[in-house]
Every structure is written in structure tokens, then in C-alpha cells.
């Protein structure tokens, strides 16, 4: 009988180590660092904020950390960033940092309370120019994008607008060119697996009623850190809007991606290319 009891006791004792590590930082130990760097920036900025507890006032000013030591290194040269009161961020001219395509950078932030945060990122290669294929359809212009080659651009986001518009209202042509959506993605974030199904087709209404009109496309090739951060942040916002005192949350929680060790936030790289396509 004793042996049986000892066996049960032994099983109970070996059960105690679960191997689970719980991360639950107190607000005083929670520091957020964020920066996106690109060769096209004139000033590189890093934002450093103290985490706050639930119930605290959501005030940017109260969360700002102004006395941190912030540096970015490309492996050979380390540049210190200084706090800029105007933009409420740590900044350095890109003429000094010289952010370059396909190069890796390391960010380090040390706060006065002794917290050290580190992150690395790689700036994507220079993207190829975005091509536009379009046809005239009455007064309208229907077009689609041909995205740059896969090997150069794994993740990207883009934006576009009409530029160089020259239009004079007249009888029978009171409205000038504008965009009309035929098929639109719910967000502008793409990874390679999205490409086959995320074909974007758009229409510029009344394009041929103008004397002159162009489409300006701002294409950002982004690294994986930036992609994951932006995507999870969007999903997390959806989760929050799903939570209420009326019904339980019917969505899995979505933590926002972080590649910062010692804290939270993101250090990402992107490479921008702006192209203009003249319709007329």
C-alpha cells in the first residue's frame, strides 16, 4: 500500500514543472520603441514611449521618454540620435546615417531606468518601377498594376492619387477625373502569397474629359518586420472593436507584432519608389 502511495506522490511531484514562461511586464518596465527607416527619408526618427497601465490617461505627452540614449548602427559606424522637441522623437539626418538598400541596421535604446532595448532590420532592395496597364473605356480609363518581380519585393504596400490634373468644366462635362473602385483589397498590405488573388483593378472616371491627368503611385517595398507589425496592428484594432459589455468577443486575441527585445515596438525598413503614369 505504501508503495502505491509513494508512486502517486512521485507522479504528483514531477507534475509541478510546466515549462511555461509567462511574459507580463509591469507598466513601469514596459518601454515601446518604434522606427521605420528608408533610404528616401531626409530625417530618420525613433519614437520612445513609456508603457502605461490600464486606467491611466492616454496621454502621449505623459508617456514620452526624452532622456533615453538612442543609437543606430550599420555594423561599422554607430550614430547617436538626439531628442527633437518639435517632432517628439529621436532624430538624425539621413545624410549622416546614410540608410542604404539591402543593408542591415541595429537599433539600441537605453533608458535612464536601466532598460535596454534592441532590434535589427534589413532595408529591402530598391524596388523596380510599378507598371500600369490600362485601356480607354468611353471617357474612363480602366487600369491594373503589374507588381515588381517577386525576388526583389517580398512585402509591399502602396498608395496612389491623381496628379497633374488639368480639367475645365463645360457643358456635358461638369465632373473631372476621379477614382472609382471596381475591385479593392480591404487593406493595402501585400505579401507574395497574396499576389495571385489580390489583383487590383481600378478605374479613373472621366479621365478623357480632362486635358491632362496622371496617376502617381507611391510604392513601398517593406521588410517582414514592418509587414507583420502593420498587419497585426490592423487585426488587433479589429479585435478591440469586437469587444464590448454586450456580447463576448467572438474573435481570437491578436497581439501586435514586436521585434524589439527588452520591450515592445518595431524597427523596420522600407524602400520607396514613386512613379507617375500619364493617361493624357
Amino acid at each position: 500500500m505504501k508503495n502505491a502511495l509513494f508512486l502517486l506522490l512521485g507522479l504528483w511531484l514531477v507534475s509541478c514543472d510546466s515549462g511555461v514562461e509567462i511574459e507580463r511586464l509591469a507598466p513601469k518596465d514596459l518601454v515601446a520603441v518604434s522606427s521605420f527607416i528608408s533610404p528616401q527619408d531626409s530625417i530618420v526618427r525613433v519614437y520612445v514611449y513609456q508603457g502605461k497601465a490600464l486606467g491611466d490617461i492616454a496621454s502621449l505627452e505623459k508617456a514620452l521618454i526624452k532622456d533615453a540614449k538612442v543609437s543606430i548602427s550599420d555594423g561599422s559606424v554607430t550614430q547617436n540620435l538626439l531628442f527633437d522637441e518639435k517632432t517628439r522623437s529621436y532624430a538624425i539626418s539621413n545624410q549622416l546615417l546614410k540608410v542604404t538598400a539591402s543593408k542591415q541596421y541595429a537599433l539600441q535604446v537605453s533608458t535612464a531606468t536601466g532598460t535596454v532595448l534592441k532590434a535589427t532590420c534589413q532595408v529591402p532592395p530598391n524596388p523596380a518601377e510599378v507598371q500600369i496597364d490600362g485601356v480607354k473605356d468611353g471617357n474612363d480609363f480602366i487600369f491594373s498594376y503589374a507588381w515588381p518581380p517577386l525576388e526583389k519585393t517580398a512585402y509591399f504596400t502602396y498608395d496612389f492619387d491623381l496628379t497633374d490634373v488639368l480639367f475645365r468644366p463645360r457643358l456635358g462635362a461638369t465632373s473631372g477625373p476621379s477614382f472609382s473602385v471596381i475591385v479593392i483589397a480591404q487593406n493595402n498590405l501585400f505579401d507574395n502569397s497574396d499576389r495571385p488573388s489580390k489583383t487590383i483593378e481600378r478605374k479613373v472616371i472621366n479621365a478623357f474629359l480632362a486635358e491632362k491627368v496622371s496617376i502617381r503611385t507611391v510604392f513601398n517595398s517593406i521588410d517582414k518586420n514592418t509587414y507583420q507589425f502593420l498587419k497585426t496592428k490592423t487585426d488587433a484594432n479589429n479585435w478591440n472593436s469586437n469587444a464590448s459589455g454586450f456580447i463576448p468577443i467572438l474573435r481570437e486575441p491578436q497581439p501586435v507584432f514586436s521585434n524589439v527585445t527588452g520591450g515592445v515596438g518595431v524597427f523596420g525598413g522600407y524602400n520607396q519608389r514613386i512613379s507617375t503614369f500619364e493617361i493624357l
Binding site: E21, A53, L54, A63, T157, P253, P255, Y270
Partner: peptide, 27 residues
């Protein structure tokens, strides 16, 4: 998994606005 605090980050590449993000801790 519930929010246990919050912090601030830029809303996107344009850095035009700073956004509040909930801190969930580990799962």
C-alpha cells in the same frame, strides 16, 4: 489574453499620427 496595459507607436510608415496599442503580454 486580455489587455494589461498600453503603449504608443506610429500608425504607419507616414508617421503622421501616433496610435495607441494594447499590451497583452504572452498568450
Amino acid at each position: 489574453t486580455v489587455p494589461q496595459g498600453f503603449y504608443f507607436v506610429p500608425g504607419g510608415l507616414s508617421r503622421n499620427f501616433i496610435e495607441r496599442v494594447d499590451y497583452l503580454g504572452s498568450r
